[in-house]
Amino acid sequence: MSGATVGGVVPPFVLGGRTWGSRLIAGTGGFRSLAEMESALAATGAELVTVALRRLDPEQKGSLLDVIDRLGLFVLPNTAGCYTARDAVRTAKLAREAFQTDWIKLEVIGDDRTLFPDAVELLRAAEELVGDGFTVLPYTNDDPVLARRLEAVGCAAVMPLGSPIGSGMGIRNPVNIAIIVEQATVPVVLDAGIGTASDAAYAMELGCDAVLVASAISRAAHPTLMAQAVRAAVEAGVAARHAGRIPRKLHAVASTAELGLPDLS
């Protein structure tokens, strides 16, 4: 018995030069109320949460940042809603002013039905933002070549989608995610598509370093309960990944020795 533990076998999660205790990054979109958000975010155990920038809504009640501050979370601004590199770069610079952080979750959308990233604009924006000193975390396709290009321009992670944002379709191309993991030298964060806890566990078993989950928690019937489930799934998944699973075989392998079998004929 090796007595292996999560602490002993699983490497720490280092992202953007910092070590994080949680491998679950939480989105803040889609909650029905700030109170529900606060309860669910606390239950995720997440340390990093995404926020967007929009025009002030006079109807908006309460402050998102107050919730985030009460929970002591690190704000990861995003460029949600940007369709061009130019808009995304400008939004990132606004976010830097607003939150006094160089970290940016870079989203450059190419299609409003699927919300798939625009690869060309994404790469262009990533390169410019890295050059401007940002810690760039790009939401990307499940495309290993694009992931490699994003890494090459200096992104701090690659964040491939499992399936379309908010779709809850899980990981539609696990083989590509595995290839991205295999080649990456920066953290891989599964971003988008998680529908339930098992999807998050699967992402970790495929070798992702973390998952980013928003809708699966915020739009669940009971967000805090789902937050607990996804948190446990992420922890189970990363442990399973490093535990060294048994290989798949076509036929059975008896788990009980034949030696000592009695003759009962």
């Binding site: 803040t28 979109g29 995404t50 929009r54 998102l64 940042l65 607003a98 928003a214």
Partner: peptide
């Protein structure tokens, strides 16, 4: 002029 603030999202 655009005056922007933090909102839930992403």
């Amino acid at each position: 002029l655009e005056v922007l603030t933090a909102v839930a999202g992403g």
